[in-house]
């Protein structure tokens, strides 16, 4: 398969970026999107054309949340429920022009080429996306009985890998699906209860501070999430927020 690639090139955070066009030929349909970029980079280096294209990636099996490219108008490209690394070139037409952009959001500044700084998500997690751990031995898995459906629901929320596709897809660059999932995974379980009210208020406060937009219930986040996190998590977060705001004072 042959492709024309329009890729965003930006030397550093402050430099002015622009699109560069590269032709690539003889790509196998079973090649993954990142492997295709690897082949491109090899050519760029070997033929001494340009610096290799920088993009985030790590596990390449869709569980680490590092990769994330905005491909032809969709985060993680044209396939549903997969990360960029699990996207295959057979999802494109032969001879197609593929435009590759970094996530665009005020809270996700570009570091270089297609790599953005997603530490804003870490800052939100630091505000309460955890359970204050007790020291000591590992408790038994069934020490606190939890009904299976509840556990499943919490697990679904916890499957968020923090890739940022929700923010990238949202017309308002809102992080509600991410925060909704992180709030939900604890709100659904007894272990999360003692800190639940503080958690939701603080995480949302941080999210707003960092410059993420407001939610307009557009649900592009849900459509693009590689882990199929549901919008009901946002509704749950709203519930938790109302409950917290009306019954809790953050000291």
């Amino acid at each position: 398969m042959d492709f024309t690639l329009k890729i965003w090139r930006q030397a550093n955070a402050k430099a002015k970026g622009k699109f560069e066009t590269y032709k690539i030929t003889g790509i196998s349909p079973d090649c993954s999107f990142l492997e295709m970029l690897d082949i491109l980079n090899e050519q760029l280096i070997n033929d001494n054309i340009a610096h290799p294209v920088v993009f985030d990636n790590d596990c390449r099996e869709g569980i680490c949340g590092m990769c994330g490219l905005y491909i032809n108008g969709r985060p993680h490209g044209p396939d549903d429920g997969v990360t960029t690394c699990q996207l295959h070139m057979r999802k494109f037409h032969d001879g197609e022009t593929i435009t590759i952009e970094p996530w665009r959001a005020k809270a996700f500044p570009v570091i270089k080429d297609l790599v953005v700084d997603r530490s804003a998500f870490d800052k939100i997690i630091q505000e309460g996306g955890y359970i204050s751990a007790t020291t000591g031995g590992v408790p038994d898995a069934n020490a606190i009985p939890i009904p299976k459906p509840k556990a499943d629901e919490a697990m679904d929320a916890a499957s968020c890998i923090g890739c940022g596709a929700c923010v990238a897809a949202c017309k308002n660059a809102s992080a509600m699906l991410f925060v909704g999932a992180k709030v939900s995974q604890f709100a659904l379980l007894p272990q999360g209860q003692p800190e639940a009210k503080r958690r939701v208020v603080r995480m949302i406060k941080k999210m707003d501070e960092l410059g993420f937009g407001n939610c307009t219930n557009t649900y592009a986040c849900e459509a693009e999430c590689p882990k199929s996190i549901k919008k009901t998590n946002i509704a749950r977060m709203n519930r938790e927020f109302i409950c917290s705001k009306t019954s809790y004072t953050d000291k």
Binding site: G73, R74, A169, E224
Partner: peptide, 8 residues
């Protein structure tokens, strides 16, 4: 550069 094509 490319307008969003997500299902909304």
């Amino acid at each position: 550069a490319v307008a969003n094509k997500s299902k909304t």
